[in-house]
Design a protein around this nucleic acid. Sequence first.
DNA 1: ACAGCCATGTAACTCGTTACATGATTAC
DNA 2: GTAATCATGTAACGAGTTACATGGCTGT
Lengths: 190, 190
Amino acid sequence: MRQDPHDRPLPVTSYALLGLLTFGDELTGYELKQRADITLRFYWVSPAMSQVYSELKRLTELTLVEASDDLDDGRRTTRYRITAQGREVLEAWMSTTPAGFSTLKHPVALRLLMGHVVDDATTRAMLTEYLDEVGAARSDLREVRESLRGADAPGEAFRYPALVADWGLRHFDSEEDAARAALRELGDPG
Amino acid sequence: MRQDPHDRPLPVTSYALLGLLTFGDELTGYELKQRADITLRFYWVSPAMSQVYSELKRLTELTLVEASDDLDDGRRTTRYRITAQGREVLEAWMSTTPAGFSTLKHPVALRLLMGHVVDDATTRAMLTEYLDEVGAARSDLREVRESLRGADAPGEAFRYPALVADWGLRHFDSEEDAARAALRELGDPG
DNA sequence: ACAGCCATGTAACTCGTTACATGATTAC
DNA sequence: GTAATCATGTAACGAGTTACATGGCTGT
């Protein structure tokens, strides 16, 4: 049982990359990584370049994507597109997989949990730093969201990316509120 | 360079477990896992039992924790407590590590991103299922939060765990809002 | 010339998981 | 007597990371 690699369930990141190839264009590994950095990173992960290439290799072997080699500028590039089988597999995954719970890896919350180990000034500094990072991430995501305007209505190309972007913005708002609330509790002089 | 295991930075999960040992009691690996399931799981991870034991082994070798073997009931148990060196290392980590950004692994948001691959009814079903799970998680966390009442004032034992619990509850509220908003956008008949 | 981006990969390694194995104590 | 819980580990494995290696094209 289970020797055949076709039996093994794909890691979610494979489906994520497959999903990025459903938006119409053929992408190089490099471009795929850029797309992932724009969108996926907020809800899933930004896979390393090396992983993008190895996932593409796997997906090609499973014939879920097709590669075409170009020699555009004298520079060798390989573009990938999703196959009909890839679409089927992706759709099946989306239809049949249970929702699954979100996982938060939150180093700031983790360290707040053990706040008694350091003094409150240290913890406040950490929270303030985190607020900056949340602000930066939110403004990145807001830019993405704005770039989708005009194609975010029902039936249009970027409806669903727009919906998730709104979800993400809400999340960052909540993070900011939570960090500010914690700072207040810690008697932030500001 | 870097052959000595004492040079290598510990994984964050090591610090997390070390942190759980700063709340006063000596714990067995089994109990540590239970504590992690109650608190850590909401902000970091629930390490597998086997990982708890292997982390404890490593921390013991680094003399950041000390083990004492008991034979309480005829059943062999090993209890662990943090050492002075362990406290130092933990404090240094908490004081010097940059805040670090939170990572969200959100299978539901990921699948919403590719909503155009399936029909909206499928996506709505996923969101509804997720709402149930959020509700369950929140009620678990609410219970934890309630159990801290009476020891959550400044200077008391569970002040910081209470602060993070409030953070987590806020997060779940935000998740519920976001999921409901997405459902409305998808014309949820409810 | 030189930096920065585009483009593709390999190798080594670690974290963390699942499956497996063992056995004692407690509750029904 | 048997199921659940307490308690401790080993082994195999996979996902994903960092470091390394290569080279062409673009702008200054």
